[in-house]
């Protein structure tokens, strides 16, 4: 059994973290609200006013965005106390018998894979239900449309890069001791998460510019992944 990575220990760590994503830890509140309210709200507004067709590709794009924002913010909520001295809240996590790599990967897999897939699945199920019940407000089921819609390949790649980078960046932000600096870094990451996804919508017709933006965001994502792992590896209490 390796000290730095063991698949069984990693599984235990991931299960532990998944259990902690429950309402008793105050983690799922924003997610549940956006999950439950988003699609009906859009449907209601656009359906009643008739200002915009609530077509499948549009709904899917918005669901993807909501899912990415929710999942990216998970480390800030679930692991907010990971390195805090106040009331010894970081000690619990530090003393769990798993390696630093297993703990880091557990946060990453939960935020980057488990939660987005779960949130997306609930979104799709809810959308399907609403289409079945309120068919006049919708043009079609999600799978009856060109699903990617206005999200072209570079836009999708860019969104994923910004999502991965910001999520890992939030892990790093949790490990910053000074609350002032932690807030500054978190704010900048939020700005990047929001702003980093927007330019490509306007640059979609300029192929070179599109890929330059994707490359810059890829660099930032790699940088954030590296510093967040280094921070996790060197945490002291």
């Amino acid at each position: 059994m390796s000290s730095s990575f063991d698949i069984q220990r990693f599984g235990k760590m991931l299960r532990h973290d998944v259990r902690r994503c429950s309402p008793s830890y105050g983690v799922v509140g924003p997610m549940m609200i956006s999950l439950v309210l988003f699609v009906p709200l859009i449907t209601l507004v656009h359906g009643v006013t008739g200002t915009l067709a609530v077509d499948a590709s549009y709904r899917l794009s918005m669901m993807t965005m909501i899912t990415l924002f929710d999942a990216a913010s998970l480390p800030l909520q679930l692991y907010a106390n990971i390195d805090k001295k106040k009331r010894n809240s970081g000690i619990y996590y530090a003393m769990l018998p798993a390696s630093k790599l297993e703990k880091y990967l557990s946060i990453a897999v939960l935020s980057l894979v488990v939660v987005p897939v779960a949130v997306m699945a609930v979104n799709v199920a809810l959308d399907t239900l609403l289409v079945a019940v309120h068919a006049p407000y919708y043009s079609q089921y999600l799978w009856q449309s060109g699903l990617v819609g206005w999200l072209s390949l570079p836009v999708l790649v860019n969104c994923l890069l910004v999502f991965v980078g910001a999520t890992l960046g939030f892990i790093f932000a949790n490990g910053i001791k000074s609350s002032g600096w932690r807030n500054v870094v978190s704010f900048l990451l939020w700005m990047w998460l929001v702003g980093g996804m927007i330019p490509l919508v306007f640059l979609d017709d300029i192929p070179y510019a599109v890929w330059v933006v994707v490359a810059v965001n890829a660099l930032i994502a790699v940088l954030l992944a590296t510093i967040s792992w280094n921070k996790m590896n060197k945490m002291a209490y």
């Binding site: 000290s3 220990r9 830890y25 010894n88 619990y92 769990l96 018998p97 390696s99």
Partner: peptide, 20 residues
Amino acid sequence: LPEMLQHIFFLPDEVTLPDN
């Protein structure tokens, strides 16, 4: 190391507990 952490438990004076 996980092998060490499995054999030792530290209960601090104050612990933050989830409300529910």
